[in-house]
């Protein structure tokens, strides 16, 4: 039996990066210290905040909701709320919604569920079908990502949110980093930092990633320890079609052979972000002339896609 490097109890986690073993108590302590350090380092939250947590119902976002809800007991000025966007993918999201509601009730957290269907008149499955019929060049993840980000900002604002917390972890961040390098999208790299930066648009809700420095392996362990891991581990049926799928596999294989490579890549991102922010300064956002939501162009991407799909 492997023992904890700090107290001799039974180990439940082994870090291949530093060769240390952690028992449950010391793992949770380590996890808490890392997240609090990220929150402090990037000034994610002030004394008084209404933090809306974007929840998919999966292990990472439920862990973030659980973690922030517990942390808020030590921060009397914080209100935590949960927001779930139901894209409408048959056989996928419905398994996760029940777990989301149950967790919110157990944590006594106010929540809201918004669907693509009620907001746009079509579920993601219907949108993907429509896009194919029209011969549009987009992958399902493009529609999903654009519409989801649009709704997260709009709905969190309507819930009174002063900040939107997403459960993007270290693995998510470095996958996006590598994908954007390979596509030569440096303006996008400039936007994947732990906080969304100073954007003054009155309808924009600031976004933060408290799990920026946490490996997906660690969020999974946290979720199992708190019974937050989904009962049915159903994968998004569109996931294997995405570029991210290959990048994720590549990075995991690389990490197995070279423990610590993921942290190195994250540090490279942090290093390059300060340089890129000089070049790609976040200008004040415009207002979409169709829907009135914040946008970098005259018309936001959600409205552009809706126009192409003929559902505006």
């Amino acid at each position: 039996m492997a023992k904890c490097s700090f107290c001799n109890r039974r180990a439940i986690f082994y870090s291949r990066v530093n060769g240390k073993f952690f028992c449950e108590k010391h793992f949770l302590k380590y996890f808490d210290r890392k997240v609090r350090r990220t929150i402090r380092k990037y000034h994610m939250f002030g004394k008084n905040e209404t933090i809306v947590v974007a929840v998919s119902g999966g292990k990472d976002s439920l862990s973030l909701l659980h973690y922030l809800s517990k942390l808020s007991k030590r921060a009397p000025g914080w209100i935590i709320k949960g927001l779930l966007i139901d894209e409408g993918i048959a056989g996928y999201r419905e398994h996760l919604i029940g777990k989301f509601i149950k967790t919110c009730n157990e944590l006594d957290v106010e929540y809201k569920i918004v669907s693509f269907k009620e907001e746009f008149g079509y579920s993601l499955d219907e949108i993907v079908k429509k896009g194919k019929q029209l011969g549009l060049p987009y992958l399902p993840c493009t529609y999903c990502g654009v519409f989801r980000r649009y709704l997260l900002n709009k709905e969190s604002r309507e819930m009174g949110g002063t900040v939107l917390a997403t459960a993007h972890n270290l693995d998510d961040v470095i996958q996006t980093f590598l994908m954007n390098i390979l596509n030569n999208n440096w303006d996008r790299v400039a936007r994947i930092g732990p906080v969304s930066g100073v954007i003054t648009h009155v309808r924009f809700v600031r976004r933060v990633k408290p799990f920026f420095d946490i490996l997906e392996k660690e969020t999974t362990t946290y979720s199992i320890l708190h019974s937050l891991y989904p009962d049915k581990n159903v994968e998004c049926p569109y996931a294997p079609l995405s570029f991210r799928w290959y990048i994720r596999k590549f990075l995991n294989d690389l990490e197995m052979r070279n423990p610590g490579i993921k942290y190195s890549l994250l540090n490279s991102l942090v290093e390059v972000l300060s340089l890129l922010r000089e070049k790609y300064r976040e200008s004040d956002l415009k207002t979409c002339k169709i829907c009135g939501e914040p946008s970098s162009q005259e018309v936001c991407r959600a409205c552009m896609l809706r126009r192409e799909l003929g559902i505006l």
């Binding site: 039996m1 439940i12 449950e24 998919s56 997906e216 320890l225 581990n233 994968e235 995991n252």
Partner: peptide, 29 residues
């Protein structure tokens, strides 16, 4: 890896009759 209900590490030995459940780290989309 979760062995008989407890999270274990890659360095732990398996015993005869163990039920090992592997929880995928990768999920979602």
């Amino acid at each position: 890896p979760v062995s008989n209900g407890n999270i274990v590490t890659e360095h732990d030995e398996v015993k005869d009759g163990d039920l090992l459940t592997l929880y995928p780290v990768v999920s979602g989309g």
